[in-house]
Amino acid sequence: MTTNTAKIIAKDLEMRFEDKHLFSASKLVFEQNRVIHLQGDNGCGKTTLMKLLAGFYQPTKGKIYAEGFAIAPWWRSNSITGKALYLHQHPYLFEGSVLYNLTYPQRFLTADKAQLQARTEQAIDKAQLRHLLNQAASSLSGGEKQRLAIARAWIIQPKLLMLDEPTSNMDKHSQHLVLQMITDLKQQGTGMLISSHQTCMLTKVCDHAWLVSDKTITTDNVSTLKDTEPTQVELAPALQVSAG
């Protein structure tokens, strides 16, 4: 672990909505070069955890902070929003064409324009969006929207990426295209957190697992758990990190 790996750390985390206690965890580290499968039943708080790490919500207790990212200039807030890229379960696309949506974030990047242009071209092919480029983004099918959102992330090459139930809308073919892009990102060192309540094509890329159950978040090494049933995952030797 080098000191300049980008990571987001949550310490003494506790999350509640009003009186409803969702989960607690004493320490979570989401960092580059790791792909984590976030597991848990419906309503256990997977989406909420991702939104916490994305900076959309404030935790009820504890703190969440980033390390290893470039320091923002003084006139910009140094919040964690924008550090780990979060992809919604149902991606939101802006009014406009597919191409507009694909290139939307590039205005906020400092990367070389020509390089971005080249990556955009590659992403269009990887996600097979070329025939849809000038179509209104709102008219895409669920799976096409998902592919667009992941292609957009692939162009940016974020240090950290969170995918919320990425396969829920996708057929085998789309899953295959997305798997390619995810594998690329993994090789480029992007740290990923992929939520899904069952194993799927994408979770095979994961080499770690976080499990939300009984209001705690358990983290463990999942390399032995690949292809196992979710019920067995809970039985696996787990490193209990939560405060409970």
Partner: peptide, 24 residues
Amino acid sequence: RRAWETSRTLGAPKLSAIWAVCRE
């Protein structure tokens, strides 16, 4: 809400995100 969240998580500063929401 996702319009704001998507814009912010894609790296938009607050003012640009407000603009993106107004555009929607």
